[in-house]
């Protein structure tokens, strides 16, 4: 049985872009990669928009069927349970906040035998991740709703188009502090590919993961 990686966090923390990049990276080394778009909360800016690209990389996308893609009702793709019982690498893109994470209360029993990573995606520049108290509250709520425990943090400090190296460094320091106080390791820091080189020179002591943004419209 392969890995199960779950990206959870607050609304707009960067879960979807991180999950997309993670699945695409896995597809370079593994044949059976499955990306489950479990965003039950909001149909805008979801992994499902990237179906064609994922298909080209041999990644199986589990998402609401075509007619229900903008259905605006919470729906769990029916094949998820089946794929959890198969040998594959599974990446979960979970909807925002505890409302989105509650789907794992249902799915947990179907992968009890598999080890999993559940990663808390944190962007400290988002309004509800500005303080340790807020992040700790979110973590507790997500763990309670999902009946799973976080195994690490993904540091995603950014201000969208206005992100620069200083933004990332300052933001990452705050994420590190959250991680220390929550007693969780920072698994990696995600950075847009064009800032990867300059950020490497800062020697932040954390694994850098260069990512490409897939969902932001080109004109923004």
């Amino acid at each position: 049985m392969g890995s199960v990686t779950i990206f959870a966090g607050g609304f707009g923390s960067g879960k979807t872009e991180t999950a997309l990049n993670c699945a695409l990276e896995l597809s370079r080394y593994h044949k059976r990669v499955v990306l489950a778009d479990l965003d039950l909360v909001n149909p805008y800016f979801c992994s499902r928009e990237l179906e064609q690209t994922l298909h080209e990389h041999g990644i199986k996308l589990l998402a609401p069927i075509e007619q229900l893609r903008f259905g605006d009702v919470p729906q769990v793709p029916s094949e998820v349970v089946g794929y959890l019982g198969m040998d594959n690498e599974m990446v979960f893109d979970v909807g925002g906040d505890e409302v989105g994470a509650c789907v794992f209360g249902y799915l947990r029993s179907y992968f009890a035998s598999r080890t999993y990573e559940m990663l808390l995606v944190v962007n400290p520049f988002r309004p509800f991740a500005e303080t340790l108290e807020k992040v700790a509250g979110l973590k507790a709520a997500l763990e309670k709703a999902s009946r799973l425990n976080f195994t690490g943090i993904v540091s995603n400090p950014n201000l969208a188009v206005e992100t620069d190296i200083d933004t990332i460094v300052a933001g990452h320091r705050r994420v590190e502090e959250y991680a220390r106080r929550l007693d969780l390791p920072v698994k990696f820091l995600v950075v847009e590919a064009d800032l990867y080189g300059p950020l490497q020179q800062k020697r932040l002591g954390v694994t850098l993961k260069p990512i490409r943004l897939y969902l932001r419209p080109e004109w923004l």
């Binding site: 707009g12 520049f125 988002r126 309004p127 950014n158 201000l159 206005e162």
Partner: peptide, 14 residues
């Protein structure tokens, strides 16, 4: 300092 917000959140905070 700037914050990263959704339009709906910015409207609410405004």
């Amino acid at each position: 300092a700037k914050v990263l917000m959704k339009g709906n959140e910015a409207l609410g905070e405004g």
